[in-house]
Nucleic acid binder design. Structure first.
Length: 894
DNA sequence: GCGGACTGCTTACCT
DNA sequence: ACAGGTAAGCAGTCCGCG
């Protein structure tokens, strides 16, 4: 860290002094005045535009902002005119830098500036040098010889004694621009006299005020932060005019086992013809562009009459027509367009001799951008684990257009009845259009939920829409934290600075190879328990981060007087003087979700439209909050801080332990608990109230009733139970019968059992249900024994390949064995593919379902799986599998 | 040389 | 490219055993 003082620096011609700001509160206000120009929206003026994209224009050497005007439904671009330049920060003085020949002679160097930054580790302002460049590549391009490498490399050569450091050198230029100008992607802007000016729309003021009135007891700083978030989130969403695009390419076929299989053409080579492109606009435009080919029949399609069929005798003309579409629409949605459709189009266009400047696609390493619009690749968005699990509640498992389409909008891909290359024009058009339709509808269903979700995340994360829809939750979190650092003029630390200052973890994980100890799972009391209340802490980890002021700056802070503020079960302590940025921001997001958006999304008096809007926001917040603790324990996160993650988990354990003890003290039996929840047997409303009250007073944590089960059926295993709610719905958690890899044959019986259990209202009614359940199991067993399954597919296990088949070296699990058998038959398999296999008598005891026949099935293996699936529930019910299937004790012994 | 006890690997789940 | 904890099923290894 720079220990130098401003006095140590001698101004030179290239050196510019920036006005320095000192005290921490005035610092923030100062930054705000400087950066935020705001005008009030005038209803009579032409509508302002939404900030949707940000890039660096390499030719003009400035930031370029894409603005979408909801009225004209077009995107226009604005180039920076403020003279903002790329830079990095270093602890070296300009004098020292002047001595470094490779720095001074660097063609990209512009100037050195002296600036002050707040150092979060030392809790004081320090002087650093801002090395300003003409071009972001001068700071950290892929090529060697960029300044962020040169400075530390050459410092010893000029006799430098301390360590040369650079900061903020890995931030994308356009993000840096957003931070410095404190811009708000997803919000309204206007160009006035060629200046970019934020437009304040007063229509959301009332809501923002209402929200803020909920938080008047919060500290001023928190309230301010809540207001900022509320303003971003309450703002209305424009209509995004968009087009869904899908292309079909001639596909070489190969024959396997008499079946024709196709190989997806390589988009980098683009060696085959583009045969069909479907275009489906959100405004109703429906077009199919077809390439005329010899020997292709006209055929029929069931497409509606408003779809226009356009035939091209030249592929080049077809492609150029597609490019017109790409230039005409402000937003283009695809499913895997980054890696296939747009990439193929671009390379094919080159192969066809189309000039570069006529191709509106910028092909990147991983992304394909549009020169004049925004490309949203839904595959990347739906692939995002957080989106998959928390926003869509695991409704889809495989990220394919077919599966996602089926799961979210009930629209599967068209099934082909003949080989792809033999389709008539009509059939091809219909197939292609169906894909475009699924793609478009994935963005329009539930009142444009997906577009709204992307926009909400854009606003929270301060990122362009294209980035937010492709990157993971840790980037979203990183970016809004970096934004806040800049707002407060706090030096953004390097990952190694944090690690060096705060160290690693101290607790021992239960799982080998993990970095620290995690949550507690309370051992369940097996059996049937009537009248169970499940209480949980609302957003446990985000709440702890808020209440305990956790963040990289505050954990193990440098103030001696804070060391007494210890964290249970760890040697760590936390700061009592400064507020951690993470604590503040994550805490505000948590408060907004728990106290405003979640209740609003359920408020019956609101219109369906409003409720669904609140639901979008609360899901977006949920996705972010769910990851907000994990990121601190992830080495890939820029603000990685193991002690923060460890402390959070430790306080979590402490909290659930305390609350369990208190429950018992109140005379309530705790029959189970996991991480943030406790299952209470037959508690009175008063007992529940006093527990919640105690939590609020003693732990400063909100504890509420999450579920009321008529009864809960606990197995002896942790994370395995079944709960029947008061409304008769059944929650199945962790039980084998629910897992997706299990054969449908077994799953069906399991579901039948659940249906029986859902009927049970009182202990007395259990007897009848037990008989029914025994029947279900016996029937299933006998069907197996008599080999009377309907289709062999019903017996298939479905397991995902975590790696490519050749990558397994330590062991060969069964699904890999099956995968290798498929590979022998020339199937192409890679990581992420789902393998369906059955268990057979002969070595190696598994066979891919595609290659297996009924006679080979090892029935005894399946009986074994049937038993283990049901045993998890039967012991709690006091039933015995062997007895059910009619084995006497003697037979069992034999 | 063989079977049981054990560890390790892999996947799917829970919070 | 968010975390750790738990379960199941199988693969592979070690050890004892005349």
């Amino acid at each position: 860290m720079a220990k130098k003082h401003l006095d140590d620096f001698f101004p030179k011609s290239r050196i510019v002094h920036e006005k320095s700001t000192v005290s921490s509160t005035s610092r923030v206000q100062e930054e705000e005045r400087k950066n935020i120009e705001v005008i009030i929206r005038d209803p009579k003026n032409p509508s302002p535009s939404v900030f949707v994209s940000a890039t660096y224009d390499g030719e003009k050497r400035v930031a370029c902002i894409g603005l979408y005007n909801a009225e004209s439904e077009k995107i226009h671009f604005w180039h920076d005119n403020t003279g903002h330049k790329p830079y990095l920060l270093t602890n070296l003085s300009p004098i020292e830098l002047e001595k470094m020949s490779r720095v001074v002679s660097h063609p990209g160097l512009e100037q050195f500036e002296l600036v002050e930054k707040y150092d979060p580790f030392q809790d004081r302002t320090v002087a650093v040098t801002k090395v300003v460049t003409k071009d972001p590549l001068a700071i950290g391009g892929r090529s060697r010889g960029c300044l962020r490498d040169i400075i530390p490399e050459d410092y010893p050569k000029i006799g430098g004694k301390t360590e040369a450091k650079v900061w903020e050198a890995a931030i994308k230029y356009y993000q840096c621009y957003i931070y410095d100008r404190q811009l708000a992607p997803g919000m309204l802007y206007e160009i006035q006299n060629n200046n970019l000016i934020q437009v304040k729309d007063e229509s959301s003021d009332q809501m923002v005020n209402e929200i803020c009135s909920l938080f008047t007891t919060e500290p001023k700083e928190a309230l301010r932060n809540i207001e900022t978030w509320a303003r971003l989130l309450e703002y209305p969403v424009p209509n995004f005019r968009r087009v869904a695009l899908d292309i079909e390419v001639f596909t070489p076929t190969i024959e396997i086992e008499g079946k024709l299989t196709f190989r997806v053409p390589d988009p980098r080579e683009a060696a085959y013809q583009i045969t069909c492109v479907s275009v489906l606009g959100s405004n109703g435009e429906k077009r199919v562009l077809l390439l005329k080919r010899a020997g292709v029949r006209e055929g029929k399609s069931k497409l509606p009459p408003d779809v226009s069929f356009e035939y091209f005798d030249s592929e080049k003309k077809l492609v150029l027509e597609v490019f017109k579409v790409l230039q005409e629409y402000p937003f283009v949605v695809t499913f895997n367009g980054d890696d296939f459709d747009l990439r193929y189009l671009a390379h094919r266009a080159q192969n066809l001799g189309i000039k570069r400047n006529q191709i509106p696609i910028e092909v990147g390493r991983r992304v394909c951008r549009l020169r004049y619009g925004v490309h949203i690749d839904l595959y990347k968005f739906f692939f995002n684990k957080s989106i998959q699990i928390y926003a869509f509640g695991r409704r889809y498992i495989d990220v394919t257009l077919n599966e996602v389409g089926k799961a979210l909008i009930g629209l599967p891909k068209l099934e082909l009845t003949k080989p792809f290359n033999e389709l008539s024009y009509g059939e091809l058009a219909q197939y292609c259009m169906q894909d475009a339709e699924i793609t478009l509808k994935l963005t329009t269903f539930d009142d444009n939920l997906v577009m709204k979700l992307i926009l909400a995340l854009t606003r929270i994360s301060r990122m362009p829409m294209e980035d937010v829809s492709r990157q993971g939750v840790s980037r979203w979190i990183r970016n809004f934290l970096q934004f806040e650092h800049r707002r407060r003029n706090v030096l953004i630390p390097n990952t190694e600075d944090i690690l060096a200052a705060k160290g690693k973890t101290t607790t021992k994980a239960i799982i080998k190879g993990k970095k620290y100890k995690g949550a507690i799972v309370v051992k369940p009391i097996p059996g049937v328990h009537f009248n169970v209340a499940v209480m949980d802490f609302a957003s446990l980890y985000p709440s702890l981060i808020k209440v305990w002021n956790l963040g990289y700056q505050t954990i193990r802070c440098s103030h001696p007087e804070c060391k007494g503020n210890t964290i249970p079960d760890t040697p760590h302590w936390v700061c009592t003087k400064d507020r951690a940025l993470e604590s503040l921001l994550i805490g505000s997001l948590r408060d907004l979700r728990v106290r405003w958006y979640k209740p609003k999304s359920k408020e019956k008096t609101l219109s369906k439209k409003m409720r669904s809007w609140y639901n979008v926001i609360q899901s977006a917040l949920k996705v972010i909050l769910n990851a907000s603790y994990g990121v601190f324990g992830a080495a890939s996160f820029d603000l990685y801080c193991p002690p923060v993650a460890e402390a959070t988990a430790a306080i979590g354990r402490h909290s659930i332990t305390q609350i369990s003890n208190k429950a018992r003290e109140l005379g309530i039996q705790v029959i189970y608990g996991d991480t943030d929840s406790i299952f209470l047997k037959n508690p009175t409303p008063e007992q529940i109230d006093s527990l919640a009250q105690w939590s609020k007073e003693e732990l400063k944590m909100e504890l509420g009733v999450d579920k009321l089960y008529r009864y809960a059926l606990l197995s002896s295993r942790k994370k395995n139970y079944l709960g029947v709610s008061t409304d008769g719905s059944v929650d199945v958690k962790g039980l084998t019968g629910k897992k997706r890899h299990i054969p449908i044959f077994i799953k069906e019986s399991f579901n039948q059992m659940n249906a029986q259990l859902a009927q049970v209202k009182s202990p007395a009614e259990f007897e009848g249900a037990k008989k029914q359940i025994a029947n279900i199991i016996r029937t299933c067993y006998l069907k197996l024994k008599k080999r009377e399954w309907e289709r062999i597919d019903d017996l298939a296990f479905h397991v995902v390949l975590g790696e490519a088949p050749d990558h397994y070296v330590k062991t060969t699990p069964q699904h890999v064995k099956a995968a290798r058998l498929l590979q022998e038959k020339k199937y192409k398999l890679e990581a992420g593919d789902l393998i369906s296999f059955v268990k057979v008598v002969k070595e190696p005891h598994v066979k891919p379902v595609q290659l297996a026949s009924n006679s080979e099935i090892d029935v005894e293996k399946y009986v074994g799986h049937l038993q283990s699936t049901f045993d998890q529930v039967l012991d709690a019910l006091g039933l015995d599998f062997d007895e059910i299937i009619g084995l006497t004790k003697l037979e069992r012994f034999m």
